[in-house]
Every structure is written in C-alpha cells, then in structure tokens.
Amino acid sequence: MNSVLIFRTKPTLLVSSFRLTESLCKRLSNRSDVSEEIIRQNNLFDIEFKKQKEAIGRIEKIEVRYEGPSETATLAMNKHISTPYDCARHLGEKIAEQSAVALLNNDTLWHMHKPLPDTCKLQFLHYKVAQPSSVNKIFWRTCSFVLGAVASNSFKDDVKVQLHSFPSPNVRSGSFVYDVQLSLENWQPTQNELKVLSIEMIKFCQKNHAIHCMDVSQELALDLFRNNTHKYQQIPNIAANHNGKVTLFRAGHHIDISRGPMVANTSHFGRITVANVIKLETDIPGGPIYRFQGVALPRSIVMNHFAYSLLEERARQLNPARIPGTLENFDEDNSFVAQVTA
C-alpha cells in the first residue's frame, strides 16, 4: 500500500524503526509554503482582531482580585484588553507558564488569552489541581484542535482534506477525536503512517504556539470558512445558539471553531500519540469520513512506558462519540459526549 501522507516527491520505502521514520518525516514533511486559502483566512482573522481592538475606544481600568493557593493580590488591569495571561505574568513567569486555564468569579472557566470583560476574582488552574476534571477536558479539547491542524497539513497535494468536527471532550472515552473527510475510499493507515502523524503533532506543539481566541459575527465566520462545506453548514446553527457569535481559535496558521476554552500554549503538550484512523459509516456526501484518534499527556505529567502503552492501546479502539450525519447540525456543543458529560 502506497503511503498517502506527506509525500510531495516520489516516496521511499518506509521502515519500522522509529528513528528512521522520524528522519524520513523531517525530509518529506518540511513544508515552508502556506496555501492561499490559509493566507486568506489568517488575513481575515488579523483584520478583525485589529478592528475589535480599535473599537474599544477609551481605556477603562478594572480591578482583578487574584486568589492563589498561598497568596492574594489585587491588580489594576485594562477592560477588554488585559487577559488572564497578562495577569499571570504580573504575578510571575512560573504562574503564566503552568496555568492551563483561568477561573473567573469561582464559576466561569476563561481562556488565558481572552480579554477580561470587567472587574472580577481570578484563579489559575493547572494540571495537578485537586479536582482536575475541568482542566483535563480543556486539555483534551485542545488536543482535538491540534489534531485537526495536523490532519489538514499532513497529506500530499492530490488528497483533498476537509475538517468536519470534533466532539466535546471526554477523557473517559479513551481518546481525543477529529472527524475528517478525505478523498480516499478505503485508507487503512500503516503503523509508520500513524508514527508520522504523531511526529507531525509533536513538531507542531514544539513550536510553542500561543492559542488565541476571538468571537466574530456569523457573516465573518461564513466568509472565513466558505471553502469548507461542513463548517459553512454548521456555522448558522452555532451562531443561533451563541447570540449570533462564533468563537474562533488560532494556533500558528491554523484556525478552527470551538466553544473553548483551550489551554494557553501548545508548549503544554508532553507525550503525544496519534493512535488510529478509522473510516466511519456515514451518509455525508463528498467522500468518506475518517475518525482520527489520539492520546496525549500534559508536559507536567510523567507516566512510565508501560502505563502509557495501555493508554495507547485503548485509544486505538473506536471512540464512541456520535458519528456525524446529514440530518443534524453537528458540532462540539450537541455531540453525544457533550450531552452525557454536561
């Protein structure tokens, strides 16, 4: 079976050695070019980001009361400009680097790079908090987001790739997921191809991309995703359930839709494995839908090889999240997993 991943020139024979696979990956996947579509999307994102900043007008001060495990502090910050990450840097670089997500007023999880809307109480959650379920879900959601970025850019040019959606995070399912439409009828990835995907995800995360977010109008979201049939169809339903707004996240050049929040930076990722890609039975037109599945650990979590291999084995099993179809507006908010973990 010929490899469908990454090869922009005539492929050489893949070998089983991980070291040789890694070397092969570096030789064949070093893409310096960015597609016109990605450039267009990022230009729209940048223009809107600048527009929203300029619309703030007169700067208003807000009081942010930080409540840490051993200390408290009151910070004077800028309304609709300052982010939890800005607050964390005032308190120390270690807090900024370790914090996965902010908690506002004891009840609202808040993305670290999302501007604060008003005076508030602020806490920072990391991966070793006493009750980590919320942080785990946020990390899992970010894993799906990054997996979408990798799936978008890891195939040679004659394979059409369209991201469909990913379900709400559920660590108990055993894997994070992204459902992707490929112009491949019966692809069954080899272990070497899965290794290449894993390496590409690791390389993406090692670039330490800050993950930014922005709420935009339905009209802008439709323009940004006008060349993705699935997301274009999903956007009106998402906007209708979120006061006419769609939340975008960006890491590097990759832009996607999610309710969020996500972790602050791809540097938070430690061990990563793309464990399986499974063709789904679905009635969506345009080509087969494949479920990309993976498992990962935050960088701060250490696990021995045997225990991690058990996680990898479980992640190879088909994730039970709802399979997308034509008769539903499928997105992260209305997936099966979202319903059972709400």
Rank of each mutant, 00 (worst) to 15 (best):
R19V: 12
R27Q: 06
R40E: 04
R299H: 09
S152Q: 15
A251I: 03
T142M: 10
R31S: 15
S198V: 07
H305P: 01
W110A: 06
K53Y: 10
A321L: 09
P117Y: 06
N170H: 12
G92W: 02
N319S: 13
G57I: 07
F145S: 05
A210G: 10
K195M: 15
L318H: 02
K160I: 13
L5F: 09
S335C: 08
S32M: 13
Q123K: 08
N78S: 14
S154K: 01
A130E: 07
N42E: 02
R250Q: 06
T282K: 05
Y232K: 14
S35N: 04
A307Y: 11
V246P: 05
I278R: 05
I47D: 07
R89C: 14
H80F: 09
W187P: 08
G68S: 02
N186Y: 08
L248P: 08
G174H: 01
F145R: 06
Y308N: 02
L310I: 02
R31G: 11
L28E: 03
S168V: 08
T142V: 11
A251D: 05
N265W: 01
A307V: 12
T108R: 14
L103W: 01
D223W: 00
E48C: 12
R271F: 03
V4Y: 15
C87Q: 01
A296V: 08
H230N: 06
N78R: 04
E97A: 13
P298D: 11
D158R: 11
F155Q: 01
V302Q: 12
S154E: 10
S183L: 11
I199G: 03
G148N: 03
A76Q: 15
C213H: 06
T341V: 15
H254S: 09
G92H: 09
V277L: 13
H230V: 13
L20I: 11
V34K: 08
A275P: 07
Q234S: 10
M112Y: 08
F225A: 11
N30R: 06
F18W: 12
S175A: 15
A251Y: 02
Q293W: 07
S133G: 10
S168A: 12
V180Q: 04
T142G: 06
H242I: 02
D107E: 12
A151R: 04
I81W: 01
N329V: 00
R271Y: 02
A321T: 09
N227A: 05
K121P: 00
A149E: 00
H209L: 04
N276E: 12
N276Y: 04
I235T: 04
L311S: 07
N106L: 08
T83G: 02
M262K: 04
M77H: 00
H209T: 02
T326W: 01
R250M: 07
W140S: 05
W140A: 13
C143A: 15
L182W: 07
K207I: 00
I235Q: 06
K160F: 14
R250E: 03
P285M: 12
L311P: 00
T190E: 13
I138E: 03
P261K: 03
R31I: 09
K26R: 04
N208H: 06
F336R: 11
V246E: 00
E332I: 06
S133L: 05
A102P: 02
